[in-house]
Amino acid sequence: MAAGGDHGSPDSYRSPLASRYASPEMCFVFSDRYKFRTWRQLWLWLAEAEQTLGLPITDEQIQEMKSNLENIDFKMAAEEEKRLRHDVMAHVHTFGHCCPKAAGIIHLGATSCYVGDNTDLIILRNALDLLLPKLARVISRLADFAKERASLPTLGFTHFQPAQLTTVGKRCCLWIQDLCMDLQNLKRVRDDLRFRGVKGTTGTQASFLQLFEGDDHKVEQLDKMVTEKAGFKRAFIITGQTYTRKVDIEVLSVLASLGASVHKICTDIRLLANLKEMEEPFEKQQIGSSAMPYKRNPMRSERCCSLARHLMTLVMDPLQTASVQWFERTLDDSANRRICLAEAFLTADTILNTLQNISEGLVVYPKVIERRIRQELPFMATENIIMAMVKAGGSRQDCHEKIRVLSQQAASVVKQEGGDNDLIERIQVDAYFSPIHSQLDHLLDPSSFTGRASQQVQRFLEEEVYPLLKPYESVMKVKAELCL
């Protein structure tokens, strides 16, 4: 049975990233139509530049190519590739079939990587351009969430054990800070992308030097003109047959890092959902379990974690691919890159769409948070109580021993009897502590235990987050809708 299948058929496997999760716009960027249309555009740009620099290419040939950029006979191309065992030459023939007058000058002087690699770089750039505003929107939604809850005390956790208090907004800023680093890295790697350009079979530009009869300047002009037509500021000066596969490492490393950030955020949300302090959106008709109707599973956060793990592992592909590119190139890269580049971007696209949807509907339960604080705060307040007693004339050592005994009794009630923490009640009825009984409410005010959390939130948002989001103001209103 021949390899390949009808990918629109229910009898043929289709990647869930495309069929179930990723956005239509990201799927289109990695589609065959987008790819092969870009090949034709690159052939047109090459012909236009070659004509401008004096090669015998007519206006009629150029116009014929322009008129057929979208006229792609995919069936013919597939048949040609089956016959020739070469995808680029299959599309040269297919393009030439609908451009008979231009057929002889299509791909003039070029090698397969002229269309293959340059198209990949265009796709990487455009895919990054799709991700950047999506990530900015996630940051914006979380920034709104953090600002609104900047002063809401909550129990902090280290080692997932109760620690000092923080605020809900401050905790959210930990998430935002990681995503801001990801946004900066995505922008950097996007701006650092260079075009492969017009380089020939081993990167020496020998074929173009021959076409222009040894004119170095025209060869350099050709490279520059096509690079500018493709919208790049610069091209690699040095290439082998391909652009260095280190570029793929750079791009997928940034995406993998984004995956790590999203995994951490969504894990926190899942843990908070278990504590009943916070939940992701839950639709009115949504079913959490087929057997347990009360369940409210954090399905979206779980999906993000599941896909983020996949995204983090994909960076190993370009690392290994770059390491086995012998001399000017081997074909070890080809099949692998067809999979890992598309999957990385479709996965990143999915987790950003999902995280935006989550961040637009996060639900906080202040009463649950308050109750958990009441359970733990008495123990945390013991040092403040000791200091207040010393100020009232008591002995630190005597007070410490009193607190120690009462704390152990209260802990026994919590752990052995399943009761509430009654340390404060014990202190309130103990005559030894009568000098500070009137101060206990103040000493137990949760806001006095959150330090500068709310001020940190305000400063972080104003100095770091809002300036970073400013270039994306025009796209901030787009909502994230999930079908599944």
Rank of each mutant, 00 (worst) to 15 (best):
F36T: 14
G393A: 06
D248S: 00
G200H: 01
Q285I: 12
Y21E: 00
K82T: 12
A102M: 07
S395H: 08
A206H: 10
M65A: 14
A22C: 15
Q375E: 06
E79F: 14
C180A: 12
D333T: 04
S9C: 14
S31P: 00
Q63D: 04
Q409I: 05
L352P: 01
T119K: 01
L84S: 06
F145M: 06
H93D: 13
S23E: 11
E425F: 11
E80F: 06
F236Q: 08
A480L: 15
R194M: 07
Q356E: 10
S9R: 11
N68A: 09
A127W: 00
A143W: 00
G109V: 00
A453S: 13
L211M: 13
E463S: 09
T330K: 02
V262H: 02
S454V: 11
I269D: 00
R329V: 02
G231M: 09
T201N: 04
M380V: 02
S15E: 10
S207N: 03
P378D: 02
Q409R: 12
D398K: 15
R188M: 07
L174P: 15
V92C: 12
P100K: 12
Q325V: 14
S434W: 11
H91Q: 15
L468K: 15
S301G: 12
V198W: 01
K75V: 10
Q416F: 13
A230M: 02
R137V: 15
Q320L: 10
Y243T: 15
Q184R: 10
L272G: 12
L355T: 09
V364L: 13
T267D: 04
K75W: 13
D223S: 06
G4L: 14
L482D: 10
F449E: 05
T111F: 03
E328Y: 02
R245A: 00
E48H: 05
F236L: 10
E463H: 15
R234L: 10
Y466R: 13
L183F: 06
A206E: 05
A453R: 03
A348R: 02
K101R: 12
M316K: 02
H310G: 07
L186Q: 07
L255K: 03
E79I: 09
V475T: 13
K134T: 14
V219K: 04
S447V: 15
L121R: 01
C304I: 13
L135D: 04
N336Y: 02
G169K: 03
R452T: 12
F345S: 10
A18R: 09
V219D: 00
A146L: 01
G203I: 01
K82W: 11
H437N: 07
D120I: 06
K224R: 10
L352F: 15
K199Q: 05
K82P: 14
Q439Y: 05
K101E: 14
V29N: 15
T201H: 01
S301L: 15
A18H: 11
C99V: 12
E473M: 13
F145I: 04
I358H: 03
M181D: 12
R171H: 05
R309N: 07
M316W: 13
V251I: 08
E25R: 14
D422M: 13
K415D: 04
D6K: 11
L272R: 01
C173L: 04
P435D: 09
C304N: 15
G419W: 07
M26S: 03
E50M: 06
L252S: 12
E473A: 13
A230Y: 03
G231T: 08
L44F: 06
L444E: 02
H400D: 01
P435H: 08
D430G: 06
I424Y: 15
Y466I: 13
S112P: 02
T154M: 12
A2E: 08
R270D: 00
H86Q: 08
Q458N: 09
I386G: 05
L362G: 05
E464W: 07
S448W: 09
Y114V: 04
V363K: 05
G116H: 06
G451P: 05
W326R: 03
S474V: 15
I265D: 01
V92I: 06
Y114S: 04
A163T: 02
S289E: 02
K199R: 04
S407T: 07
H93M: 09
V390W: 04
L469I: 14
T201I: 02
G203M: 01
A291H: 02
V168S: 04
D215T: 11
M292H: 02
C304A: 15
